[in-house]
Design a protein around this nucleic acid. Structure first.
Lengths: 136, 136
DNA sequence: CTGCATCCGATGCGATACTG
DNA sequence: CAGTATCGCATCGGATGCAG
């Protein structure tokens, strides 16, 4: 990844590209990532996912799933049984996402403590600086 | 990355961890990623960044920068000159983020076309399915 | 069981104006 | 130049109710 003096990028990353930005956004969406990881293990049914995640509302699960499906990351299969049963599974494309995500997740886990410390130190410095009082 | 039958994860990823989720969120933030990449090349001044990004508002640049600074990813240096000059640079920790981000960005770029196609096909199927009319 | 539509509060973000 | 505070709009997201 290389960056030119004028702010333009060469090589593997172009932040100006709307499509790339959009995909990055999807990864930033906590639910999407969670669902992808969950589905990385095995296909799941709707309420099965809902119970697995716990904290997600039905609306958000639906929204997330549809977004993932639209992007070709997840395959939705309806079994016309009674009661209806819908199965969600990662597509081939969806599975390729697991690696980049795990790299990122690995970074997050590995540097979690550092970030935490940086945050505390930052907050401490701030509260001590502007008010003049350190133990407000 | 491994996933157990009960939905719990082993190894490198734990979606339940708030800290991890928070960091993931930061990467999902388009501006943060962009700034990190930009700063990966060289340190920049405030308005220099602003011009480089073009589309970001001052408010968001400030917010983004502060968030990055708080997380220990970016170092803010003030030169008490006249007019004031403030320099932003990646910290050592910040530089370690470049690799995971580029992996992800690489994925996004590499699969951009596939996602695009999936999206179009999804949208087409939808508009043709519920309304009964295919060329609405 | 699965999923969509609606209402409504919370938050995000841009635009603007003002300070050092 | 760098940064903060405020306002107003747009979107997000949860809760609820209805339908296949």
């Amino acid at each position: 990844m290389k960056l030119l003096a004028n702010g333009k990028l060469t090589g593997g990353f172009d932040g100006d590209c709307p499509a790339t930005r959009e995909i990055l956004n999807r990864v930033g969406d906590k639910w999407s990532v969670l669902v992808v990881v969950l589905l990385g293990d095995a296909s799941r049914r709707f309420n099965e996912l809902r119970r697995s995640i716990d904290g997600i509302s039905q609306r958000m699960l639906t929204t997330t799933l549809r977004g993932l499906e639209r992007d070709g990351l997840v395959k939705r299969t309806v079994y016309p049984t009674n009661p209806p049963q819908v199965d969600y599974a990662l597509t081939k494309l969806g599975r390729t996402l697991l690696t980049p995500v795990s790299v990122l997740a690995g970074w997050a886990q590995g540097h979690r403590a550092e970030v935490q410390r940086a945050r505390e130190s930052f907050d401490t410095a701030k509260s001590g600086a502007h008010g003049g009082k350190a133990d407000a």
